[in-house]
Simulated assay, not measured.
Amino acid sequence: MTGLVWDVNKLRIATDAAGIALWSWNVDTDQLELDERGYTLWGIPNTGTITFEALSACIHPEDLDRVRAAFAATRDMLGAYETDFRILCDNEVRWISARGRGDDEGIVERVMYGVFIDVTERKKAEEAREMLAGEMNHRVKNIFAITSALAMISARSATTKEEMVQDLHQRIFALSNAHDMIRPDASQQNRAAPLGHLLDTLLNPYASKHSETERVRISTPRLLVGEKAATALALVVHELATNSIKYGALSTANGALDIKCCASAGAVELIWSESGGPLTHKPSGPSGFGTKLLMSSLRDQLGGAISASWPPTGAVITLTMSEARLGG
């Protein structure tokens, strides 16, 4: 093909295909002009022209100062620049990438040119990867904490080295069984599990094996837990158990855990009560990653929430979940 001419219509077809919005900025008057896609992207009416200051009202408050500073610095930058930021559009958070060239390169009669690109999906994917990496790191740390705690539990109850080895082996094997229960291999058929059985399997490693005192007590109605819900619930239970091992009832030889559950009007309430451990108090400071992960699992996958009280005798954690989500 020869003589290809990139006229306005052909350029518009190309930018539409790429999802690119065009902007121009008069550096003297602060006037911005957007193409139709630009106004749609920002979720504002097409007024023909708008000031950068007025457009800034759409920028997420946490990004506003950074974006203003970035745009002010673009004229002194060499080469291409790219600034990613969030905007609020009809109560929806959208990510925009502003791109252009600095050092007044390409400026025409005091007007600079550039593009806006919607990068929301890319940012969501990046956030999901960061969340997954954080979750994996958190789980690895939990594994070390749990393994160390199980060794201490076994040492407290065993009288010989051989007995301790056997006891620790049984507890770690129980953890493995719990993992297989919620994450069956590809050859196994997925099926729902009774809630009581799932909780018993998950908490069996922490139960007393050499004492007449029942360390973990579980009382639940007959409720079935689906595969997806089982994974989320297991994450929540492991997080609570890890915290108890570090700071609560399961950190002491005489500590006990009592779990009661009831279901009514499509909602399931599970109460996790600790006793016999060290004196408790409400945690201070910002929530850690584990707490955020726990709350996210309950909210997003189980349609529920968590609340806690901190009497001196031991933590009381109340989980609420959707019965429909639990069976899914």
Rank of each mutant, 00 (worst) to 15 (best):
G19Q: 09
G19Y: 07
G19K: 11
W25D: 04
N26I: 02
T29D: 14
L34C: 12
L34A: 01
Y39I: 15
N46E: 12
T49Q: 15
I50S: 10
A54R: 15
E62S: 14
E62K: 14
L64M: 03
A69V: 06
T74L: 11
M77A: 13
L78A: 06
F85D: 13
R86N: 07
I87P: 00
C89L: 07
N91W: 03
V93M: 15
V93W: 12
I96T: 01
S97E: 14
A98S: 04
E109L: 01
M112N: 04
G114K: 09
T120D: 06
T120N: 10
K123V: 08
E127Q: 14
A128Q: 09
R129Q: 15
E130G: 03
M131N: 05
E135W: 12
H138D: 11
H138R: 05
H138I: 13
A145E: 12
L150R: 06
A155W: 01
S157V: 02
T160N: 06
M164I: 07
S176W: 13
S176I: 01
A178K: 09
M181W: 12
A186K: 11
Q188K: 12
Q189Y: 03
P194E: 01
P194N: 05
G196Q: 03
L198R: 02
P205F: 12
T213V: 04
L223P: 03
L233P: 03
L235H: 15
V237S: 07
H238K: 00
H238P: 00
L240N: 10
T242Y: 05
S244E: 02
K246S: 12
K246W: 00
L250K: 11
A263E: 15
S264L: 14
A265I: 00
G266Q: 02
L270Q: 05
L270Y: 01
I271Q: 13
W272R: 13
W272L: 10
G288R: 05
G290I: 10
D300Y: 06
D300F: 12
I306S: 03
W310V: 10
P311T: 01
P312G: 02
A315G: 11
T318L: 11
T318V: 06
T318N: 05
T320Y: 00
T320S: 07
S322W: 03
A324T: 12
L326A: 09
G327L: 03
G327Y: 04
